[in-house]
Design a protein around this nucleic acid. Structure first.
Length: 412
DNA sequence: CGTCCACGTCTAC
DNA sequence: TAGACCTGGACGG
């Protein structure tokens, strides 16, 4: 019932299941007792639909399911639910309650309170990959929430295991929202434990005070972590992992996310590995591909540095919140992480890393003006890097993106 | 300044 | 299965 009082800051960087869940808690917490009214405003630039809703007085509450959040608008007059809007966050969506004056940049859908000073609940989405559906339902193709509908989720998977799509490498299957609604690219690397992320709230992974991701970063053992290997899955997305890939190793390319590549060595798939076959499917083709796939050992210093930046975000707030537990990994039983990796991450050199969550660039920039802090070096949540060693004969040049092409054309 | 990358879908070949 | 859709941070030159 009562939402945890700590959810009073917006939350949705890393918009995967847990973050969407946090977003709903945030809305419920911040909008509790607020009376909204009038029209719902959409930014001109957003291609999402208008929300032709107007009610003299209504309240807002939220509920999440996997990677969707539904806002439910309830008329104060008769207590009836008069509208709902289902949101997907894309890569950068979030909700934020502010005053009118502090309206964030990229606030693409806005709900205004009646009482002065007027406040605004905004759907903020810099990249505009997010979407909403007015009076829509949970997206039909999406399966049960991996966190809040665990039994249904499990049943849904088991019931369809024989489908062909489950023949793919599990890291790819896990991004299929029909069966893993809520799992995204960091969670798949962190092996299906999103409930743990929710429970990180107890450890300080909530927006109450921090506004940073120290705790989440420390919880993560694979995603973007030094010592981890990475490669591209067949959809071009980076998968982070440790140890040798199994026989279903994605046939994607090498990861391009290391600044300075070490020598790329082919991974030998142990003969035994193929015996550990998935319950389905023939592996012949895959085995062949395995020979071609090269995996880069992830001990590159650039990656370490990057990870260090992310985890060593020692802001005052963070310190206070974590009560000196900053450097400690949360105990987790399941994963067998190379002790050396743990050590390296814990002992990696600390450098001041002011908080600046990536999804909120502009808002942060505005904040910066008020605060005479040294210029923040933004922590990178995305996998940084990119630059492949030029002239490496082993690496295929990356295809030029359309935007780059356009830019080039403009120039000439 | 140019390039690369990012927590996610979508839809045209 | 490539791209397209976007913004913006980090980094190299």
């Amino acid at each position: 019932m009562a939402t945890p009082p700590q959810f009073n800051k917006p939350m949705s960087d890393m918009p995967e299941g847990p973050e969407l869940h946090f977003a709903s808690l945030y809305v419920n917490n911040k909008c509790d007792g607020l009376r909204f009214g009038g029209k719902v405003e959409k930014s001109a630039v957003s291609k999402n639909p208008e929300v032709p809703f107007s009610c003299p007085e209504y309240t807002i509450r939220a509920v999440s399911r996997g990677k969707e959040v539904k806002l439910i608008l309830t008329s104060v007059a008769d207590g009836a639910d008069v509208a709902c809007i289902v949101f997907r966050f894309g890569m950068s969506g979030s909700f934020k309650l502010t005053t009118e004056e502090e309206l964030p940049k990229h606030a693409h859908l806005r709900f205004y309170t009646l009482d002065a000073p007027r406040q605004v609940l905004s759907f903020v989405d810099p990249r505009r990959f997010g979407s909403w559906v007015y009076n829509g339902t949970w997206q039909l193709e999406r399966g049960p929430c991996v966190m809040t509908e665990y039994d249904k989720f499990r049943e849904n998977v088991l019931k369809h295991l024989s489908e062909k799509l489950f023949d793919k490498p599990i890291c790819e299957v896990m991004l299929n929202q029909k069966y893993f609604n809520g799992i995204g690219n960091y969670l798949r690397s962190e092996i299906l434990l999103p409930l743990e992320v929710i429970h990180l709230a107890d450890k300080g992974y909530n927006p109450a005070h921090t506004h940073d991701y120290t705790v989440l970063m420390q919880w993560m053992q694979c995603y973007n972590a030094p010592g981890m290997k990475s490669l591209r899955d067949s959809n071009g997305r980076t998968i982070w992992f440790q140890a040798e890939p199994g026989p279903l190793i994605p046939k994607g390319k090498k990861a391009r996310n290391k600044r300075k590549s070490v020598d790329i060595k082919p991974v030998k798939v142990e003969p035994n590995a193929t015996k550990r076959k998935s319950t389905r499917g023939k592996l012949t083709a895959v085995k062949k591909e395995c020979k071609e796939v090269k995996v880069e050992a992830g001990e590159e210093t650039a990656v370490k540095r990057r990870r260090a930046k992310m985890t060593e975000n020692t802001t005052e707030d963070a310190k206070m919140n974590n009560k000196g537990e900053q450097g400690k990994r949360l105990p987790r039983g399941k994963k067998t992480v190379d002790p050396e990796v743990k050590v390296s991450r814990r002992q990696s050199p600390r450098s001041p890393m002011p908080k600046t969550p990536s999804g909120r660039g502009k808002a942060i920039k505005q904040e910066k003006e008020d605060v005479p802090t040294p210029k923040p070096r933004t922590r990178r949540l995305r996998s940084d890097v990119g630059n492949q060693p030029k002239n490496s004969p082993k690496l295929k040049p990356r295809k030029k993106r359309q935007s780059a092409v356009r830019a080039a054309e403009k120039k000439s």
